[in-house]
């Protein structure tokens, strides 16, 4: 077994933590960095509640070991709002009632933000396909889709 002292670049801050090799990025964020926005749902890759953005890609943080993220740029839901202003995706989720219990919400936000940053002009089928990657047990998805469509327009206007 090995223990590693690693530097993680999270939401534009560098943090140095010491973790066992077996610690997932999800647990390191929650337990060692006090960033509890990424949620632990299934812990085996199925639900997406733990989604964060690593080097621009949406990643299930329960399927990545923290040591593997050494030196990589990580974004979590805590870094989405800028100076008190909600990200367009957060705003749309609130206004479209895309949140019920909220357990899945940080994962959906990071998933959809990453996908739209990579491909801003996704058509509706592609958006549905992206949203189908994560599980929501409350909303029935229609309001999530409505929010993502609106945020997609908003994000395109801002760039």
């Amino acid at each position: 077994m090995t223990r590693h002292t690693i530097q993680l670049k999270i939401n534009e801050q560098t943090r140095t933590i010491s973790v066992d090799a077996r610690k997932t990025l999800l647990d390191a964020l929650r337990e060692d960095c006090n960033l509890t926005g990424a949620h632990a749902g299934c812990e085996h890759g199925v639900c997406g509640a733990c989604t964060v953005i690593v080097e621009g890609e949406p990643v299930r943080s329960c399927l990545m070991f923290a040591v593997q993220a050494e030196g990589k740029t990580i974004r979590t839901v805590e870094g989405l709002a800028q100076g008190g202003a909600l990200h367009p995706m957060q705003k749309a989720f609130t206004e479209q009632h895309a949140v019920q219990c909220g357990y899945c919400t940080p994962g959906f936000l990071m998933l959809t933000v990453a996908a739209l940053e990579k491909t801003p002009d996704m058509d509706d089928d592609a958006l549905r396909e992206v949203v189908a990657s994560n599980l929501c047990r409350c909303t029935g998805y229609e309001n999530i889709l409505a929010a993502v469509r609106i945020a997609a327009d908003d994000m395109r206007r801002r760039t």
């Binding site: 990643v59 998933l111 990657s133």
Partner: peptide, 12 residues
Amino acid sequence: MPNIANYSVRSR
């Protein structure tokens, strides 16, 4: 490709 897993799993 799009039939494998989901968007996030496919990115790793």
